[in-house]
Design a protein around this nucleic acid. Structure first.
Lengths: 225, 225
DNA sequence: CCTGCAATGATAGTAATACTATCATTGCAG
DNA sequence: CTGCAATGATAGTATTACTATCATTGCAGG
């Protein structure tokens, strides 16, 4: 069985749909590599064009600017992850098992999904850890939010919130706990690898420790009514 | 009693100490106002110079670049906050009371401290919420960390970690929980004001709801051994 | 009182960034 | 085979992120 996974993205995320042309897919492929390599601050459309063997103007036909491209990549990632979550938790009824699966998906290294040829999910995951929050930590969040640019992130958060309520319908802060799980899965990973004294994961750099921390945090919190 | 609070800052944070001259203090004062007003991305030394009635070159004599200035402001804030924490929890023995005080200091609106004339802590607090994590979410974290630029943040995190251990010496993740409290105090605030569907704080926009969420989270987690 | 040096101001200049515009070429849909 | 959309090639502008130079000021120590 060979399938190609296509994620339908909000039209406002781009000027021209990058999934629908060779050039567009090359933009996605190489921007992921370049941002992963040198970070978002250092990333420019000129450098990307050079890397791709195309031109700056060509990229501007797809994305308004590099910030929009980052939002696109992030939105794509959260959509893909929500799909993974629904796939992996399908037919599971026990909310404990579901929540544990979710934490594992959020907090452990992602493998490249062979069903998406132009996206390396493993690299993208690391980009989201470092750059993801920059998509919304701006003065223009509200306008971007009105354009629904953060919908995939909010959708995933809602899914998690519902899992929490399934486990304990009387817990008062399901959405805040959901956003805490998402952000901390990433921040604790970043801290572990870059500022280890902010964590308890020593030198091991093992994803599974983050999973343990998060599981303990989540279930302690929602266990007591 | 009139005191002037002086915070000793790491020499690597600046080229020339801004606390030791009128121009330096003006840089701090106006950069806080400008970053608060238009956000860090839009902020440039040229605009700052114009606002202050000085010149771009003059500012470069104090700070290498705007990112370093942001790190300086952030480091200053965390140092000031650690002082507030030590002041407000002084003579308190009960770790519950201490932790609650800490959460309150982190998560509620800060008043301008009259003991620091050139820093508006209230504005600075809002800057840290939106821009704080950008100081370390870079490709050069490790070098910056070697220069001890994040020491105040790490120190505060250690203080919180110790409070947690005082309450429950067998809790396994005091430092990760500490960094979670700090980050979530800010992120939940940002979400509440800008992406409310990621929280359970509806339209009220009340700091105290964040306090309740964090208290519940922290004490649930460290209550169970 | 003067002198000397550090801090500041004023101005200029450069390379890179973040775009926008124009026109030529190509390739494939009808 | 033709026409139009996508791409390529090139150029140009305003702003950003600096660096350099020289003149001015102001005050600390002799």
């Amino acid at each position: 069985m060979e399938i190609q996974l296509q994620i339908k993205m909000n039209e406002k995320l781009f000027l021209r749909n990058p999934e629908q042309s060779v050039l567009g897919k090359k933009i996605i492929l190489h921007s992921i590599q370049l941002i992963h390599k040198n970070g978002f601050e250092d990333f420019t459309f000129k450098k990307l064009a050079k890397e791709m063997g195309s031109t700056e103007a060509g990229i501007y036909r797809y994305f308004e600017n590099k910030h929009r491209l980052l939002i696109y990549l992030t939105a794509w990632y959260w959509s893909w992850l929500e799909y993974q979550v629904s796939f992996q938790t399908n037919n599971i009824e026990d909310p404990v098992v579901k929540l544990k699966m979710l934490i594992k998906l959020l907090a452990t290294t992602v493998d490249d999904d062979i069903n998406t040829s132009h996206v390396d999910e493993s690299l993208l995951h690391q980009i989201i850890i470092t750059e993801g929050s920059k998509t919304y930590l701006t003065k223009h969040v509200s306008e971007d939010n009105k354009d629904q640019l953060f919908k995939p992130y909010k959708d995933l958060c809602a899914v998690i919130g519902n899992m929490i309520l399934e486990y304990n319908p009387s817990y008062k802060y399901p959405k805040s706990l959901a956003s805490t799980i998402i952000e901390m899965a990433h921040f604790q990973n970043f801290f572990m690898n870059n500022l280890p004294s902010l964590t308890d994961f020593g030198g091991n750099k093992d994803d599974l420790e983050i999973v343990s921390f998060l599981e303990d945090l989540v279930f302690s919190t929602i266990d007591r009514t």
